[in-house]
């Protein structure tokens, strides 16, 4: 494995920072299907620190001090350490015994690996959903799709768009009959958010592209409702993800803006 060059840090005050942001992006993936009331102390800390990493409030590759977090949250180091382990498992931080903990760096190679795997697993999800396409699940699908469509035309709501779009895919994943595939896709979604946001900041997510994605999901929903063949959609999704790899790669190479 060759070490890919690290992606250059995002310049402060970039376009993405001024946009309205959805809340609980990290937590919704770290603790799928669990109510906030049931989070343990380490989980609450993981949710908060995870969110900061996704926002690049904690920059990729930068150190995360246990002690400072313990002080900030008013807890001992134990729960902070457990929180960092949760985030390590989710791939958002890397813990090295001597060097301490850092927010996982962003690299182009890592981005490619994540999306290639997402592509392969999404196929299983798309093909598995029809067996679980109850009227109730189809209604949920429609709700997710409507949420995505409602923001698809508005450049100012682009962070809500990516979140809604991602949640729709995760909804399919969590109803495809394979909990492992669902779990892995959820983790990969979490790991890809920083890359996706970099691509947004570089202006690579256009309304045309968003319409194409909406059309894809509309077609998929119709296929599920009519119980028709999903293979054309598997093929289309593969193409969409490939395009995403290309454009995100370009965004990463652009570096600071």
């Amino acid at each position: 494995m060759t070490a890919a060059a690290r992606v250059r840090p995002q310049a402060a005050g970039s376009a993405a920072e001024t946009l309205a942001r959805p809340d609980g992006v990290a937590a919704s993936r770290l603790f799928v299907g669990r109510s906030q009331a049931a989070w343990t102390l380490p989980e609450q800390i993981a949710a908060e620190v995870g969110e900061r990493i996704l926002n690049e409030q904690i920059a990729p590759g930068s150190r995360i001090g246990e002690e400072r977090l313990a002080l900030e949250f008013g807890v001992s180091r134990g729960p902070v350490r457990d929180a960092l382990k949760i985030l390590e498992q989710a791939g958002l931080v890397s813990i090295a015994s001597r060097k301490g903990t850092v927010a996982t760096p962003l690299t182009e190679q890592d981005m490619r690996e994540i999306f290639v795997l997402r592509s392969g697993l999404s196929e299983i999800a798309l093909r598995g959903f029809p067996d679980h396409a109850t009227p109730e699940n189809l209604a949920h699908f429609r709700r997710h799709l409507q949420a995505a469509e409602s923001v698809a035309e508005d450049d100012q709501q682009i962070l809500f768009w990516t979140e809604a779009n991602d949640r729709l895919m995760l909804f399919i994943a969590h109803h495809c009959g394979n909990s492992r595939v669902a779990k892995q896709l959820t983790t990969l979604s979490l790991q890809s958010i920083r890359y996706v946001r970099r691509a947004l900041a570089a202006g690579l997510n256009t309304a045309t592209r968003r319409r194409e994605v909406v059309a894809f999901y509309r077609g998929l929903l119709a296929a599920y409702e009519k119980r028709s063949d999903v293979e054309p959609f598997v093929e289309r999704l593969r193409r969409l993800i490939n395009e995403r790899i290309q454009s995100t790669g370009a965004a990463l190479q652009q570096g600071p803006r």
């Binding site: 309205a20 959805p22 919704s28 993936r29 799928v32 299907g33 679980h132 949920h140 709700r143 997710h144 949420a147 409602s150 923001v151 709501q157 809500f160 979140e163 809604a164 949640r167 995760l170 909804f171 969590h174 109803h175 009959g177 909990s179 669902a182 959820t186």
Partner: peptide, 12 residues
Amino acid sequence: MQLPPITMEDPA
């Protein structure tokens, strides 16, 4: 804006 939560099927 309120997005629908990610829900999960009961594990088989």
